[in-house]
Nucleic acid binder design. Structure first.
Lengths: 209, 209
DNA sequence: CAGTGGTCTAGACCACCAG
DNA sequence: TGGTGGTCTAGACCACTGC
């Protein structure tokens, strides 16, 4: 016969997710404590901890010391987005990459940008506007705010040769100090659907963490 | 005098990140093993493990058993994107939310979609097209593919009343089986910059994990 | 103040896989 | 096949915070 299988944190995670999606544990319900779950699953508390912690990171549980763990009321769907270096993306398409820095200045960010970056209202930021081109044709437009306090070196960097994204990836991975608004050209069917005025455009917002 | 401070996994994480960003450890370098780092930092291997694991999840390190841990050659910038329920977003603007299901059918997904969803080429999916409106005006266009195998119940759900995103949030949080392409109207300055043909539009792609 | 989650430790076993 | 990361355990101390 096979030996006794150990309970892994993935096992616990799967079972807890099942209880949430099956609504055995409903939104806002307080679920059992780590100690209780460890006893139920026959594993160490650390195993339960890791399972619940990953689920909480996904936004499905809310955990607070002393208060316990609750099923989130309004689970926020999150998506992790891979932000490619546009140069690689374009070159992978077999096109020649160029980019043009349209604008580069330091200024106080708008209120909306400040809120997203969690900046003090006194902080200033570097505002970059650039166009990425494939074979000379506009491919993507980039409007980026960089928190100078978080990435001081960028103030003196030469961004006419290397794009800001590429510079950040190379010099300050995961500094958490920039936000980017990007626009990428696409099909025209969506414009018809949206009934936009010709010349209007669409945009996407990305926030690096 | 103060007592001896324990080394936390955040301490190790911060120091490792520092060594990466300062290029003391360069891309493609093999870094010391967990055991060696634990000895250096004077902590347990589990502490080093958690630090390195989180950094690897961020894409800055690549770890393989036996091969060890390397600094990633091309760190991929990732952003976590919160996907709001559009109804809430529109109602928060003080507008009346309505949505119209334009299309709903089952079909084999395109090759590009299959690749992103990591589906077998035999699998079929539910394809949804919808328009979200604020006070009757188009606000966002949604083109979504749902992996029926991952979320079987959606095949029989009535999505004319509740939007797909809302249905998924409510009934199958984090099933990991759908992909969404969304377009949101925005300023017209980007269109000018992009030099697009009037009527062309821009798009953003999101992948839920 | 006491209950709950957050973390560290020391040791152990195992899965994977490069050499 | 041995070295490396992945994980579990049992116990412990601590931080936060609701009561």
């Amino acid at each position: 016969m096979t030996g006794v299988e150990r309970t892994t944190w993935q096992d616990v995670r799967a079972e807890v997710l099942h209880r949430i999606t099956s609504r055995r544990w409903k939104p806002d319900d307080l679920i059992p404590t780590e100690v209780e779950l460890a006893a139920e699953f026959g594993c160490a508390r650390a195993t339960v901890n890791r399972a619940l912690r990953t689920i909480a990171e996904d936004g499905l549980l809310e955990r607070r010391r002393k208060a316990g763990t609750r099923v989130a009321r309004h689970p926020v769907r999150r998506a992790t987005l891979r932000i490619p270096i546009l140069r690689h993306e374009i070159e992978d398409l077999g096109a020649r990459y160029t980019h043009r820095l349209l604008r580069q200045d330091r200024r106080a960010p708008t209120k909306a940008v400040r809120a997203r970056m969690a900046l003090a209202h006194t902080a200033d930021a570097l505002r970059l506007t650039a166009l990425h081109m494939a074979d000379g044709k506009p491919y993507a437009f980039e409007d980026r705010w960089v928190n100078v306090a978080a990435v001081p070196d960028i103030a003196t960097a030469d961004l006419s040769d290397m794009s800001a994204n590429e510079w950040l990836v190379t010099h300050a991975p995961f500094s958490g100090g920039d936000i980017s608004l990007a626009a990428v050209s696409a099909t025209r069917t969506m414009a018809l659907r949206l009934d936009v005025t010709p010349g209007d455009a669409l945009f996407t917002i990305e926030r690096t963490t």
